[in-house]
């Protein structure tokens, strides 16, 4: 009975969620846009003069902006490379029969559930510290100089600790995808004379393509707003060497109280994210049709 009555009920059930999300998306975004066109300093609450694109000019010509943009993409690329390649390898390993498979799985997925501030502090102090860290001790054992990871290679250090947290996510998704691969397909390829490597290239990898795309795009959503790890380890430094876009906007707002240019930065981040979003929507949208 697809009557008009049930149609109205259905709309009523849907509307709170739609209204809330609309508010959550539209109102702050409009405000960000408005602020970005005004000279708005939190500490000097005089007139908020309309300044046109001045904030954008200021933000986009700030050398810190280009550094942060480069850092954002470097972090993204580094983490994605490690998690996707490592994830495929781990998924292939975990898919094989072994003793204690359940426990191995639990061990591997655990880092994903560690809160970012904990993971950042643990890596910073107990592993990457140049005096007391485990890495320093390992370097010493091999007769090498202990590296001050976060000072000398801040981006690499951040990439490693973030990748550690996301590797389980990639592994879990790729493993799930791998398990849905029809065993008969692999057997047929084997009958056709394909060796293990050829089977991986021609059967397994194409089957994983969609899952890999999903991993890349979902991690991208989260990695573009990477923040806590930077806040508790490097504070964006030394200088702006490890400042990404999210951290730059934060420091403009809450450290320098320059709302206008922070908003301009926020808008830039929105535009960047939207470009990436289009790809993910296409991908997930296809799945809807079935």
């Amino acid at each position: 009975m697809a009557s008009t009555h049930t149609g109205a009920t259905a709309r009523l059930m849907l509307s709170p969620a739609v209204a809330l999300l609309l508010l959550w998306m539209a109102v702050p975004l409009a405000m960000t846009l408005w602020y970005s066109l005004h000279d708005y300093q939190l500490l000097m609450p005089r007139g908020n003069d309309f300044v046109g694109l001045e904030n954008y000019v200021y933000f986009l010509t700030d050398p810190a902006f280009f550094q942060s943009l480069a850092n954002t993409f470097a972090l993204l690329a580094g983490v994605l490379a490690i998690t996707v390649i490592g994830g495929v390898g781990l998924a292939l390993l975990l898919d094989r029969p072994m003793h204690g498979q359940g426990i191995v799985r639990l061990l591997v997925v655990s880092p994903f559930f560690v809160m970012p501030t904990v993971s950042a502090l643990v890596w910073k102090n107990m592993f990457m510290n140049p005096v007391n860290g485990l890495f320093a001790w390992i370097a010493q054992v091999f007769g090498m100089r202990a590296i001050d990871w976060l000072a000398e290679a801040p981006l690499l250090s951040l990439t490693l600790m973030v990748a550690w947290g996301w590797l389980p996510f990639a592994t879990l998704i790729l493993l799930t995808a791998l398990q849905s691969l029809d065993a008969e397909q692999k057997e047929a390829a084997e009958m056709d004379g394909a060796n293990a490597f050829a089977r991986f290239i021609h059967i397994t990898l194409p089957h994983l393509a969609r899952a890999i795309a999903v991993v890349i795009l979902i991690q991208t959503i989260f990695l573009l707003s990477l923040f806590a790890e930077i806040l508790v380890t490097t504070n964006g430094g030394p200088g702006t060497q490890s400042t990404n876009l999210a951290y730059l906007v934060y420091s403009q707002t809450l450290l320098r109280f320059d709302v206008g240019s922070a908003s301009a930065g926020g808008m830039v981040a929105v535009v960047l994210a939207n470009i990436l979003a289009i790809f993910l929507m296409r991908l997930v949208g296809k799945n809807l049709e079935r």
Partner: peptide, 30 residues
């Protein structure tokens, strides 16, 4: 109760998740 707009609504909801938090940090904070 799927309608012609169901797909669009779902996609739009997903797109709000892709809005980077920094984009709305300032107004939400204020």
């Amino acid at each position: 109760s799927p309608t012609r707009r169901t797909r669009g609504v779902l996609m739009w909801m997903l797109s709000t998740k892709m809005l980077p938090a920094v984009g709305v940090l300032v107004p939400i904070y204020l």
